[in-house]
């Protein structure tokens, strides 16, 4: 059994893969605890840059940027999840109907178009219709490109739910709305949760599109960080990066656990 699965050297490459992926992150994490103001010299273990993140001269700017990022991500992810759920119901349960192929292509459009093209197109669009760029434009742009990311896990989950559950409920005289609310929705919950988390992280992380459609004085965390690192990597950026890393890991772990739990109960 084991023989045909085993290839010499594959373990080594896997470990190489992990080293490449983790080395930069670990280095930045380690240096975020550097007590020295210079990023090149080690000045002993210190939490000063974490204190600086919350109280330093940039604290207000980064705080505002973080607030913008989080509120936009919350709203965009929620809207995208609702829209994607409706779309997934139609695509998975709706059978064949006119425009199904076109709809499928449309849902996946934001995935297929390179990000820089989406960014440019959005900038042109908002300028052409005379909409002032700012919080609102970032929000709608994020909403649109988060839909496919929310759609994928929801549709995948929906495909795994046998129609017989719902059918049984309908046979017992539940209305379609009741069957949906009491049977389908609870079964779908893990898919909804991971779809929402995916959309949330995608929105939170986006730099290129936001950079093009943000208006005057508007920053999200990634654009604020970009503005800072352009002038050189500073220790407080490493602390912010480590904090963001922790948030991301927390979210992925949550998504992973929810998904695993969802898989155990059908």
């Amino acid at each position: 059994m084991k023989g045909v699965r085993h290839y010499p050297g594959f373990l080594g490459l896997t470990i190489l893969c992990l080293v490449i992926l983790y080395a930069p992150l670990i280095v930045v994490m380690a240096y975020s605890f550097n007590g020295s103001t210079s990023i090149t010299q080690w000045g002993g273990f210190s939490m000063r840059w974490y204190v600086d993140v919350f109280t330093g001269p940039d604290a207000k700017r980064f705080g505002q940027a973080a607030w913008n990022s989080i509120t936009i991500a919350l709203m965009a992810a929620t809207a995208a999840t609702i829209i994607a759920t409706a779309a997934a119901l139609a695509m998975v349960k709706g059978g064949r109907f006119r425009g199904r192929g076109a709809s499928f292509a449309l849902i996946n459009l934001p995935l297929m178009v390179p990000e820089i093209v989406t960014a440019v197109a959005s900038l042109i669009f908002f300028t052409a219709i005379g909409l002032t760029t700012g919080y609102g434009t970032i929000l709608v742009a994020h909403m649109a490109f988060c839909i496919p990311f929310a759609f994928l896990p929801i549709a995948a989950r929906l495909e795994g739910i046998e129609a017989s559950y719902e059918q049984a409920a309908r046979d017992l005289y539940a209305t379609r709305a009741q069957a949906f609310r009491l049977i389908l929705l609870p079964l779908l919950a893990p898919g909804l949760a991971s779809g929402w988390l995916l959309a949330f992280i995608i929105s939170l992380d986006d730099f290129i599109i936001t950079n093009f459609v943000k208006g005057a004085g508007m920053e999200t965390l990634p654009t604020a960080i970009f503005g800072s690192v352009k002038q050189g990597i500073k220790p407080n950026i490493m602390a912010i990066s480590t904090l963001m890393l922790a948030v991301s890991v927390l979210f992925v772990t949550a998504a992973y656990l929810i998904n695993r739990k969802g898989r155990q109960t059908p």
Binding site: P57, T132, T133, Y135, K230
Partner: peptide, 26 residues
Amino acid sequence: GTCLLASPAFAQGELKVYHWFEYIPQ
């Protein structure tokens, strides 16, 4: 709603400066 969100705030007591990087002391 989105249009309203996107329109500039005319609130009193604001000033928006478009400046070079690292060019004015906080």
